[in-house]
Design a protein around this nucleic acid. Structure first.
Lengths: 191, 191
DNA sequence: CTTTTCCATTAACATATATCAAGAAGCCAG
DNA sequence: CTGGCTTCTTGATATATGTTAATGGAAAAG
């Protein structure tokens, strides 16, 4: 069960000891979410950082009753409304799962506890934050510098699993356009 | 000279010792940039994280010969093409200064050196990365969920110094619209 | 299976925002 | 001062993209 996540941390902290790992493992919580269910809700404090053991999760804003997706995570990846998690303030995005999903959750209090008592985890925390920064920064770059068509092409080239597992109208909002417009772009690209 | 930046780190690491601080101070480099000069250029590896001691710096993409601003930093704030800095890969944005500016630079190698020999700085690195994540994440939120008019209003309410120190056409690209459109929005808001 | 719901496509139309072009205003340099 | 940059404004026009609505197919539910 914990093999994947242990390897994940082992790569962040090469010299992680068995004892230190055990301290983390003892703080992890396994949670199971049926397809379509909410992991955390906009307006509430995000209670964890979520490692996806199996399944697919999504992060999204709700604006005027419409959903705008900003991120997805599949097996072996992390996802969280990290702003809300870090500041323990109301989230501006919700998180739900698009398939039956098993999550390994590191709750906020446990994580602070870990930082305090096992300072080596600051190194993991640093690299996680750095990784999330790079992720959102590149997402931003694509939104600001590429055309809608090129943004879709980027997904085809680099995140093809999303094309297979995520409904097209969600991908449309992910690249910042309407579902109808994406449909037209696809039609044009086929020619 | 180093008072501001020392206090900055002291807040990130409350129990920072004099010895540890000295190790950081010895690695800092003071740099002076005349108004309009480049701190780092798109396509090149970003060599530092820059603490602004005096002046005003800006981060921007160049797309089809046009500049798109994504961030500003004034005295007491940090700025960097952090993706490029962390990965030591070509930057997708350039950084320049809008006024005569004095920067305190922590170069990449020195920072890695610090992480290795003084692990406590992982805590500072974590908090800096977390802070930068929150910054870009909220910028993203505003771009995706607010109207152009509300994004401009946000600057008036929360970053008024930008209105005073940054040319309007740069602010326009910062909120994701053309200079002409911002001019019209301003006209409408005056009424 | 059959029914319902969800999703993708297509077309006609609407609109926000960009672009182009010109002039006015402010500001710096000689 | 005065002439030249740079920036801001304004108007006319263009266009990318959104919106609305209808259709058909696929997938899920019973």
């Amino acid at each position: 069960m914990f093999d994947g996540i242990r390897q994940y941390y082992q790569e962040l902290i090469p010299k992680l000891s068995d004892e230190e790992w055990l301290q983390l493992e003892n703080r992890l919580v396994i949670e199971s979410y049926p397809k379509g269910s909410l992991v955390c809700r906009e307006g509430e404090n995000c209670k964890g950082v979520y490692y996806i053991h199996k399944g697919l999760a999504r992060l999204y804003y709700t604006v005027d009753g419409r959903e705008i997706c900003t991120g997805f995570a599949k097996e072996g990846e992390y996802l969280s409304e990290y702003d809300s998690f870090l500041t323990q303030s109301p989230a501006s995005q919700s998180m739900d799962v698009l398939e039956d999903t098993i999550i390994i959750n590191l709750p906020y209090e446990k994580m602070q506890d870990l930082y305090r008592n096992y300072p080596i985890y600051n190194q993991a925390g640093r690299k996680i934050a750095e990784g999330l920064f790079i992720l959102i920064s590149r997402y931003n770059t694509r939104l600001l510098t590429l055309s809608p068509e090129d943004r879709y092409q980027y997904i085809i080239d680099n995140q093809y699993h999303l094309i297979q597992r995520v409904p097209q109208y969600m991908l449309a909002s992910f690249i910042g356009i309407s579902p109808e417009h994406l449909s037209r772009i696809r039609k044009k690209m086929i020619r």
